[in-house]
Amino acid sequence: MKNSIEILRSGSFSSIQDIKRKNSRVYGIPRSGPMDKRSHILSNWLLGKNSFEETIEMTLIGSKLKFHFNTKISLCGAKSECFLNNRTIPMNQVLSVEKGDVIDIRKIIHGNWLYLSVSGKIISDSYFDSISTYEKVEIGGNNGRKLSNGDYLKFKPLKTINNREVPKELINNFNEKIIRVIKGPEHKLLESKIDYFTENPFTVSPTSDRMGIRLKKVGKSIDFDISIKSSPVVEGTIQVPPDGNPIVLMSDSQTTGGYPRLGVISSVDISKFSQIKPNEIIRFRFISLEESIALIDYDFKKVKSRIGIDLVS
């Protein structure tokens, strides 16, 4: 098929994601979008695409894709074993792909989420302005489904630009495991046991998905039998269910929840947090809303001065 990519191997969970969905949460429909927005944005920037545009997100074992047109691609995010016709290819730069070439993302090594951007626009019906795939109601790209063997993605090619490379200081080093958190609405209800959240670390549980990342207490967990009226939640919200093992809501987050909201991860740390692998240790550090806003401002200016784009989230 002309201007298309054929999915030779789907991989663990590869889906189309953009940062465009708007006004859907009022009906209980999540906003979706990439887990690591920063890497998504960088892979688009490499090809001169707008930050909001779609990429293909992959995790664990990536996809094997056959290109039926000449184009350029970029790969950003989790460090992965990437091959072009069985030759290793680098990440964080622009790569030329020719008709008949096969890109194979075999294994994701450091981090969880890899982003493949293509110099083209995926032809797909949008839903609430977006083609982010959300399988529960089958909306977004690829008919609302994750990629499957034998699927074809059709593209409208875009103009390619001169080669770019992501500046080193903008690439995630996967070493930072301290996550900055702003106190949540039910922080006070949990205050008497706040040491539980700040003194001892948690590990990331392997049962996490795009809806939420489950954490497991290192050492003995304690019970929190607190329930609240169903209240709004957002990605980054740290919920505390009765067993004391927090759940951090992510891109496919539900719109409301009944567990106390300990805090919300600062928007400057969500992408980094999404890349922390199962069984790795993380710690929380509380910061004020003002600090978080200042960090966002700094982040925005840094990226603007280095690569000239406006960050979005």
């Binding site: 708007k22 006004n23 949460r25 009022v26 957002v234």
Partner: peptide
């Protein structure tokens, strides 16, 4: 505002913090 969520007593407004701060 990117999104709204209604509960019986509240209305939540979701922002892109890189575009406008909650404050």
């Amino acid at each position: 505002v990117l999104d709204f969520v209604k509960t019986p007593e509240s209305l939540a407004l979701y922002n892109d913090p890189y575009k406008v701060s909650v404050k």
